[in-house]
């Protein structure tokens, strides 16, 4: 009887792209910080340098010795992240996963339902999903924000720092308002992504972490109530 309960099952392509992207994201964060240490200052517009006025001076040590490995790892990880993300995006749209799993259902986005969920999240209720067969609305909105806003902003602002790509597409400079603006936005979007990761990890930790980890690794996610 408990075994007939419907739970989210993660297909193989979700699990593969999830872990490949997770590894690439960690590498991007670590190498991104290494690159940032060469000039831990942020600017708006086209230009910026140590002796030029900065928008923000980050409280980080200046270190010019970390750019070599940092850049190598960053661009390798960026390729892996982009390729894995492309596979995920295509598969999500083609299989209907995107509409079925990620777009909030009509009943979830009624103001009352949203407010209720918002209150539950604010109270840090970690008792597990009330509806194990679908993601809650805030969770779906967080995933959509990452997929549709933050990831594309990261990719495009990163490409705006490429002298080769911008020679072909100078529109990128217009989109972000200059090379240094793109660098600043790249950093701010990275902060938001790290924030997402922290909330994501916290949600896993307070909601049956072993079961959720097992679900994302093997695809099978036996519920706690199944009393195996």
């Amino acid at each position: 009887m408990a075994r007939t309960e419907r739970r989210l099952h993660h297909p193989l392509w979700v699990r593969l792209t999830h872990w490949v992207s997770a590894g690439a994201f960690l590498a991007l964060v670590v190498s991104g910080v290494a690159i940032l240490l060469a000039l831990p200052r942020l600017f708006w517009g086209e230009t910026g340098a140590n002796d030029a006025p900065a928008w923000i001076v980050l409280p980080l040590p200046i270190n010019l010795e970390q750019t070599g490995w940092g850049r190598n790892l960053h661009f390798l990880a960026a390729w892996i992240f982009v390729l894995s993300g492309t596979v995920y995006g295509l598969a999500a749209v083609i299989t209907g996963h995107f509409l079925r799993r990620l777009v909030p259902d009509r009943d979830q986005i009624r103001p009352g339902a949203l407010a209720c969920e918002f209150r539950d999240h604010l109270r840090l209720r970690g008792a597990g999903p009330a509806e194990p067969e679908r993601y809650n609305a805030l969770q779906k909105l967080a995933y959509l924000a990452v997929l549709l806003v933050l990831a594309p902003v990261m990719l495009l602002s990163g490409l705006t720092m490429s002298p080769g790509v911008t020679a072909a597409y100078p529109e990128l400079f217009t989109l972000f308002g200059g090379r240094q603006s793109a660098r600043t936005i790249h950093f701010l979007a990275a902060l938001l992504l790290v924030g997402f990761l922290l909330v994501h990890l916290w949600q896993v930790l307070v909601n049956h972490p072993l079961r959720l980890m097992r679900g994302m690794i093997t695809g099978r996610a036996p519920g706690a109530r199944e009393r195996l």
């Binding site: 690159i35 940032l36 060469a38 000039l39 086209e46 230009t47 910026g48 340098a49 140590n50 030029a52 010019l64 750019t67 850049r71 720092m161 002298p163 090379r179 240094q180 660098r183």
Partner: peptide
């Protein structure tokens, strides 16, 4: 032109 250094700075 815009000169971009691998250290992160840029100048015209």
């Amino acid at each position: 032109t815009l000169h971009a250094c691998e250290q992160g700075w840029s100048a015209i």
